[in-house]
């Protein structure tokens, strides 16, 4: 019998060796010895573990954000700082964005760096640099506020749908699908037209509503994943209520994808505001926004391209920076499952 042991093991399970409870530890057999050896091994392993944090040099494993991130971050910082400081800059001599820089006709459509400001002047003799800075206030405000609006409502809808599933999910996600079925820009346009109020509040609301469905989908997906994880079950076995499980266990885990989506979402919202302004559905003139400036330059595109190009360039760089920084941050904070 090659596959068989000399004695049949069935008869070999010896009662005395397997006596329950404390006796097991004292009984002088091999199993006990093994247990003791194992204990010593485990003790050593633990000692090793306790040493670890000081032994591993931190620099060796430190992840880096890379220079692209820092350039992108610097640009975002610059734009935000200029936008915030616009009133101060005006006191320091920056021209009024809604008034001509001079009364003579000569200073209309001057190219950049020609003595009429950093970015030249437009047809109405206004300083483009000042208009870009003041326009940044609108763009950034709308971008950030709309995304926060979208994340707030989108997260609530997504987490409720993902956690409770069933009919709640069918209704909520069905509503999201309906919203998604509208072309986003068309939806935003119709909201602005319907409310007939071209204020920042309306623009934020219009773009914010458009931002809800993608956030809701993202959050629902994360919730579905985390709600099945064992630590959620563990929390429930300790008597945690649904609200507690959602806010303490699932939400903190879902925050990371939300934040990285949010940064890229700001870029999309800025472009959306630009599109609305281009169509004349944003802050009414003479107050500048990037989109309306691009629109105003269209007529003189052949003779004075900078009127359109300057806000375009700033918009392009800002959106690019937000995308780069957002992507890099997501990678940086992305913790692989194995590391958990």
């Amino acid at each position: 019998m090659p596959e068989h042991s000399p004695e049949h093991p069935g008869n070999q399970a010896p009662g005395s060796n397997y006596f329950p409870s404390g006796d097991f530890l004292e009984s002088p057999n091999l199993a006990t010895e093994l247990t003791q050896i194992a204990d010593v091994d485990a003790y050593n392993l633990e000692a090793l573990h306790n040493l670890d944090p000081d032994q591993v040099p931190e620099d060796a494993v430190k992840k880096r954000l890379g220079w692209t991130f820092w350039i992108a971050a610097a640009w975002i910082f610059l734009i935000v700082a200029l936008a915030l400081l616009a009133p101060l800059l005006e006191k320091l001599g920056m021209p009024d964005p809604t008034q001509p820089v001079c009364t003579s006709r000569d200073c209309s459509l001057q190219p950049p760096l020609s003595g009429y400001g950093l970015m030249g002047t437009d047809k109405l003799r206004r300083d483009i640099f000042a208009r870009v800075i003041w326009g940044a206030r609108v763009s950034i405000l709308v971008g950030v506020a709309a995304v926060i609006f979208g994340i707030f409502f989108g997260s609530i809808i997504g987490i409720i749908a993902g956690f409770f599933k069933g009919k709640v999910q069918t209704v909520l996600m069905g509503a999201m699908d309906v919203l998604l079925a509208f072309p986003a820009l068309l939806l935003a346009m119709s909201i602005v037209t319907f409310l007939d109020d071209k204020s920042v509040k309306t623009i934020v609301l219009a773009i914010g509503i458009v931002a809800i469905p993608p956030v809701a989908r993202l959050v629902r997906a994360s919730t579905l994943v985390f709600a099945e994880r064992e630590f959620v079950l563990a929390a429930r076995t300790l008597g945690a209520s649904n609200g507690r499980v959602i806010t303490k266990e699932i939400l903190p885990n879902a925050v990371l994808p939300i934040v990285s989506f949010g940064i890229i979402g700001v870029a999309v919202a800025i472009v959306a505001e630009g599109a609305l302004a281009f169509l004349g559905l944003s802050i009414p003139p003479p107050d500048p926004t990037w989109g309306s400036m691009i629109n105003e330059g269209r007529a003189t595109l052949e003779t004075a391209p900078w009127v359109t190009l300057m806000p375009c360039l700033v918009l392009f760089l800002t959106v690019l920076s937000l995308n780069l920084a957002g992507d890099r941050l997501r990678e940086y904070f992305d913790i692989r499952e194995g590391a958990l």
């Binding site: 994880r229 064992e230 630590f231 079950l233 563990a234 303490k248 266990e249 903190p252 885990n253 958990l340």
Partner: peptide, 9 residues
Amino acid sequence: PMTSLNPVM
């Protein structure tokens, strides 16, 4: 124990 603790708490 790898999955039964909340990784972000």
